[in-house]
Computed example of a mutant assay.
Amino acid sequence: MNDTRSDRRRLLKGLGAAAATALVPAWARAGGASPSTPTDALVIDALASPLGQRRERGALIGNEELAQLMASGLAALHLSAGPVGREEGAWDATREALERWRREVQARPRHLLHVQGPGDMRRARDTGRVGLVLGMQDAVALEGDATRLDVLRGAGLRVVQLTYNGRNRVGDGCLVEDDRGLSGFGREVLARAEDQRLLVDLSHSSERTCLDALQAARRPLAITHTGCMALARNPRNKTDAELRALAERGGVVGIYFMPFLREEGQPHAVDVIRHVEHAIDVCGEDHVGIGTDGQVGAIDVDEEYRRRFAETIRMRREAGISAPGEREDVFIFVPDLNAPSRYRMLARMLARRGHSGQRIDKVLGMNMLRVMEQALA
């Protein structure tokens, strides 16, 4: 264990720590972040990407990206593999993505761990690595065959999100106006996922699909990345009724760092905290976590980034998968938490708001750890 932690320190010193630091905003480097949290939390991001804005040839995760990932303090993150919003080719694309991530973990055994069982996230933390929980954000890859979950689980999948924004064979996403809820096939998929010890994710679902799934589930479920509808009316956010039903059944909601935290303009840390605190008020402190839905490393908003971001927004609109609030001039990160240390920064902000160390531990990861371990056991 000590050797692995030494590897982490050597990586940060020799493989891009300076570059990673350069991407952290100057105000954060000047004292906005602390090297430690108020408590010794096991930190989990319920949906994030270890990839950055600049691709390097060779490994899937470049050295600079790896340096920022290792500096983040994360014990584990859930990442999305496979396409969303289209069924054609989704089966092959999802299996290929899972295989790419499996090879990536094998190529970096001192720094990454493929989470496959309930003890792996704790083991990642204890050995100085980051655990990767592989999931998919749309059940389109199943193409009407729930037994495909068996194959995907064998390939490393551990989280299955039932829908993206539109309608698929499982049920309705949050942008479907004539909300029909969970389909008969969707109930079959839900039961199969639970039998296969997969965590079912209700992010992006319609309200009826969400409530139907919670009613039918035998185990606690998660909404890994969302906001609170009561604070910002947007279909990507969840109503208090959904949040309350999730908590009553033992589930956990992850609050994201996305534009949908506000109805207008760029969200900031104060918006994240508002949604975290509202979710705690509705669900209780045992049922709230963090799922940023963004990249772990800092984002450098240069002209190239602006161009690519605007192009991505346009492509999502053309594909019919864009949600209201997605705009070329509202970025998908929180500017005053734009650093790998964002989790520690958020912990300090919550502490200053009067939240206890125990509650902060729960929000930073212990709640999500519980629901993931329950699903995988």
Rank of each mutant, 00 (worst) to 15 (best):
D3I: 12
D7K: 14
R8D: 03
A17V: 09
A19Y: 08
L23P: 00
W27P: 03
S36M: 08
V43E: 01
A48P: 02
S49G: 10
S49P: 00
P50N: 06
R57K: 11
L60A: 06
N63R: 11
S72G: 06
L74C: 09
L79G: 03
P83K: 01
V84I: 15
V84G: 00
T94L: 13
R95V: 08
L98M: 08
R103K: 12
E104S: 08
V105N: 02
R108I: 05
P109Y: 12
P109W: 07
V115E: 06
G119E: 13
D120T: 04
T127Q: 12
V130E: 00
L132G: 02
Q137T: 08
G154Q: 15
A155R: 09
L162C: 05
G166W: 00
V170K: 04
G173Q: 03
C174H: 02
V176L: 07
G181L: 04
S183K: 06
V189N: 01
V189L: 13
Q196K: 14
Q196N: 13
R197Q: 15
L198D: 00
L199K: 06
S205K: 04
S206F: 01
C210P: 00
L211M: 05
R219Q: 15
L221E: 00
T226C: 10
C228N: 03
A230T: 08
R233A: 13
K238H: 10
L246I: 10
G251N: 01
G254R: 02
D271F: 02
R274N: 11
H278M: 12
D281H: 13
V282R: 00
V282H: 00
D286H: 14
D293R: 06
G294Y: 06
E303S: 15
Y305K: 05
T312M: 14
M315L: 15
R317E: 15
E328Y: 06
V330M: 05
I332M: 12
P340S: 09
R352P: 01
Q358M: 09
R359N: 07
R370K: 12
M372Y: 11
L376R: 11
